[in-house]
Simulated scan of single mutants.
Amino acid sequence: MELFQDGLLLFTLSLVLCSSNTVLVSSRGAFYTAPTVPHLTDGFSHVSVSEGFSESFGHSNVHPTRNGSGVDLVLNKSSGSGLVSRNKYHHGFFSAAIKLPSGFTSGVVVAFYLSNADVFPHNHDEIDFELLGHEKRREWVLQTNIYGNGSVRTGREEKFYLWFDPTQQFHHYSILWNNHHIVFLVDNVPVREIPHTDAISSAYPSKPMSLHATIWDASEWATHGGKYPVNYKYAPFVASLAEMEMEGCVLHSTNSASPCSKSRLSSLDPVEGEEFVKLSQQQITGLEWARKKLMFYSYCKDTSRYKVLPPECKAK
């Protein structure tokens, strides 16, 4: 009987290893090996958290790490916590290595995003990574979203499962934003691209924004209207951030218009060059892989929510 069980185990393991891209199967489901892509994060310098950011809320729950190069953001019964960049950007490349809280995290949201709601409360822009604690299983869901010119009534959410356990080690979450497109990347793999076309031009984020990193209680909207709120029995919830990158066109107080040249030779404008105009073939392959294998919700498919789909959906 023991030999039979050992043989069955080996047979099952061989099937797992031989299946396309699958490297591990556990109680959390299948994990995968992503396609090979260029590492955009290798092309930009790290920014010290202590130099590049200010605390936005939850002072006692913001804990610097690695001599100020990293930070732990904490959510407990008292408060969540957050950071905001000292500079505002017309566009750029923004990235953080993040390790998420483990265990039961329903209602917990870790967000890494760009916004100018403080300056434009009625017509703000926003580009969001939102990592949503799962309400039933010990898993996290990745949600991306954009708002342009105050288009908050038209959510443009897409949701993905991750191909790894985000609580065991750091993984990179990156945003490329320029006049050509917005690209969301996870470990340098594009998971979503929003081309700047005529169809979306009125809702394309275009005004200078700050970079934010936060952890907070989103029980009211992230868990079916509060059905699965944050359970503080499992607090504190800690999101660890490191390897922050912010490279782009900085807004200067003396000039609200973009001072950055669109020449690919300009050191002032590092993400408008030819290599950032469109995705490479490797990046397109990665994008198609992520969307086919891991995306489980797109606003462009939600006909029950949108009787008339947003114009960019029709253009696809």
Rank of each mutant, 00 (worst) to 15 (best):
V250C: 11
M244K: 04
W221R: 10
A235R: 02
P236T: 00
F237W: 01
W221N: 11
A239T: 01
M246A: 14
I215Q: 04
P236G: 04
H212C: 02
Y234K: 06
H252D: 09
E220D: 12
Y234N: 08
Y232M: 04
S210H: 11
E247D: 15
L211K: 00
G226C: 04
W216L: 13
K227I: 15
S253P: 06
K227V: 14
I215W: 01
S219A: 10
S240I: 12
H252L: 10
Y232C: 05
F237R: 00
N255A: 15
I215G: 03
V230D: 03
E220Q: 08
D217G: 04
N255T: 14
F237Q: 01
E245M: 12
P236I: 00
V230E: 05
S219D: 15
W221G: 08
A235E: 05
H252V: 09
P236K: 01
A235S: 08
L251A: 04
S240H: 13
K233F: 15
S240E: 11
N231I: 08
M244Y: 07
W216Y: 14
G248S: 03
Y232A: 02
C249E: 04
S240F: 12
S240T: 14
S240W: 14
P259G: 11
A222I: 04
T223Y: 00
P229H: 09
T214E: 11
A222M: 00
E247P: 05
T214V: 13
A222K: 00
A213Q: 04
P259C: 09
H224Y: 12
L211G: 04
A239D: 02
S256Q: 12
P236S: 06
E245S: 11
G226P: 02
Y234G: 04
N255H: 13
I215A: 01
A239Y: 02
G225R: 05
A239I: 00
S210M: 06
E243M: 11
I215H: 02
